[in-house]
């Protein structure tokens, strides 16, 4: 519980740093998720201000993906609620974009890259309405943005892992959301894709979007993100990277296992 209080203290201090709005884009209250009897998330309270790029980091099994999925209602919650711009997910659906882990779908599915990106528009279309030329143009523009224009007509099984990831990002872009959740977009991607994602994140922040990214590479946190949440079933700490991403907090998140990794972020953050 001491940890809990610490995280509150940090989120209260948040508006004084970079953001002056003080409005939160994403808020979680008392969220608990259990797989059978083992808690995957334990009494999580989280408040993310608008317009930040936030990494969620923590060891394997810390509940990083679970936090996103439970917030979006993709897996059942044992307790608690999530609010998006002060609304429930059902009300805020149009404002929220989600990029799942790319292993979550079958890439042998008979469809094209362009078609997958267009799926991001389906939410706006609703039931029965067919995509129009405008949706197509939006999809093509998003592919351009992630550097996949040449692949629009390709079958998706012909893509490399990084290209698959960028396809998913393009699909989220066409949702034209205010708040994006990305589940491990940097996992096992090539350097080109990593740069493309970073550029995309910068562009999104420049447009005052909020992006929440499940991230596994501690070294790059200070470089790519301005906000961070350290999670290990419970929230260990959350806030601006410069204040939160400390040696001490990392030790509390990862236990003794973090070792050499902590040296780099400290150096980079300093």
């Amino acid at each position: 519980m001491a940890v809990h209080i610490a995280s509150d203290a940090l989120s209260i201090s948040a508006p004084t740093t970079r953001l002056n709005t003080g409005k939160s884009s994403f808020e979680v209250e008392d969220l608990t998720v259990a797989y059978n009897s083992r808690p995957a998330l334990w009494d999580v309270d989280l408040r993310v201000p608008e317009g930040v790029l936030m990494a969620i980091v923590g060891p394997n099994g810390a509940g990083k993906s679970t936090l996103i999925k439970a917030a979006l209602g993709l897996i059942p919650r044992a307790a608690g609620e999530a609010r998006f711009f002060g609304k429930s997910y059902e009300q805020a659906r149009q404002l929220v974009g989600y990029v799942p882990q790319r292993g979550s779908v079958d890439w042998d599915f008979p469809t094209t890259v362009l078609d997958v990106v267009m799926m991001g528009r389906y939410g706006r279309l609703g039931w029965l309405r067919r995509p129009t030329k405008r949706d197509r143009d939006a999809a093509l523009a998003a592919l351009e943005q992630v550097g996949l224009s040449a692949f629009a007509k390709r079958q998706i099984s012909q893509l490399s892992g990084g290209q698959q990831q960028r396809t998913f990002l393009a699909r989220a872009l066409v949702q034209e959301a205010q708040l994006y959740f990305m589940d491990e977009p940097f996992a096992a991607v090539d350097a080109v894709t990593e740069r493309a994602i970073v550029t995309l994140l910068q562009t999104l922040r420049a447009n005052n979007k909020t992006v929440i990214v499940v991230h596994h590479d501690l070294q790059t946190v200070p470089e790519y993100f301005d906000w961070v949440t350290l999670l290990n079933v419970e929230i260990i700490a959350t806030g601006p990277v410069s204040e939160t991403f400390t040696d001490e907090n990392l030790h509390r998140t990862y236990g003794g296992r973090v070792g050499a990794l902590t040296a780099a972020p400290e150096a980079a953050g300093a």
Partner: peptide
């Protein structure tokens, strides 16, 4: 014919289908 789009989406990516409100 009517639910082609919805069937395609939910077959390819059930998670996205649900999060988009289908």
């Amino acid at each position: 014919g009517l639910f082609y789009k919805e069937l395609k989406l939910s077959t390819f990516d059930q998670g996205l289908a649900r999060s988009l409100g289908f």
